[in-house]
Computed example of a mutant assay.
Amino acid sequence: MEHFILNAAPILLLLFLTITLLQSGIDKIMDWKGNITWLKDHFSKSIFNGMVPLLLGTILLMEMVSGILCAVGTFQFVASGKSNMAIYGAILSAITLLFLLFGQRVAKDYEGAKTIVIYFIPTIFLIYLLQ
């Protein structure tokens, strides 16, 4: 419990990213066809037209690895008070969010892009805390 109290902010932010990214990845796995259908229409007038399955698979992999690294980082923080996995998870999470932001901007979905920024801010704060 001592390690949790001393590292509450990074642990809670890591849990936030773990939940956000793993849930998003699991949703993509559970409704792959629905996501593909929606995204093909979403990107139909962009440079990503025709590449949706590859890009969705890439984002899925990035989200799952980011979420797993954040989960491992959380466990390490609680167990030992230190975590090298946390910084890797936080940085990969930020990169994943930048990819999502780029996709939203290319699709001219500016409201969707604003939503990504809401997740990006605490992620950058986490990276700051971990350095």
Rank of each mutant, 00 (worst) to 15 (best):
L56P: 02
T18I: 01
L21Q: 07
P122Y: 01
Q23F: 13
I124F: 02
S66N: 04
L69P: 04
L97K: 00
A8T: 10
Y128S: 12
Y88W: 15
S93A: 07
P53K: 04
I68L: 11
I116S: 06
Y110F: 15
A79N: 08
S46W: 03
Q76R: 06
A107Y: 07
T58E: 09
K28N: 09
T123P: 00
F48C: 09
P10S: 05
F43D: 10
L98S: 09
E2W: 06
F4P: 01
W38T: 15
F125M: 12
T123R: 00
M51K: 11
N35D: 14
M1L: 09
T20M: 10
K108M: 09
I127T: 04
G81D: 11
K108F: 06
A90H: 00
D41Q: 14
D109L: 08
F102M: 14
W38A: 15
C70L: 04
H42Y: 15
I91H: 03
W32H: 11
I36V: 15
L98K: 02
F16H: 03
I121T: 02
I87V: 10
I26L: 11
A8M: 11
S44M: 10
N7D: 07
P53A: 06
F4A: 08
K28S: 08
L126D: 00
H3C: 07
F16L: 06
K40P: 11
Y128A: 13
Q104K: 15
L6S: 13
V106S: 08
T18D: 00
A107N: 06
I68C: 04
L22W: 02
L69D: 04
D31G: 11
T123C: 02
I59S: 01
L97F: 07
G103F: 07
S24G: 15
W38L: 15
L12W: 07
G67R: 01
Y88A: 12
G73Y: 01
L21P: 01
G25Q: 01
Y119W: 05
L54Y: 12
K33Q: 14
T96V: 04
I127G: 02
A9E: 06
L21M: 12
N49R: 13
L100S: 11
P10E: 03
G112M: 06
S44N: 13
F4R: 03
N84E: 14
T37H: 13
L55Q: 08
S24A: 14
V106H: 06
T20I: 09
F43T: 12
K45M: 14
K108A: 09
M85R: 06
G112E: 07
I121R: 02
S83K: 01
Y119F: 09
G103R: 06
T74R: 00
T115Y: 10
F99E: 10
M85V: 05
L17H: 05
F120T: 00
I124L: 08
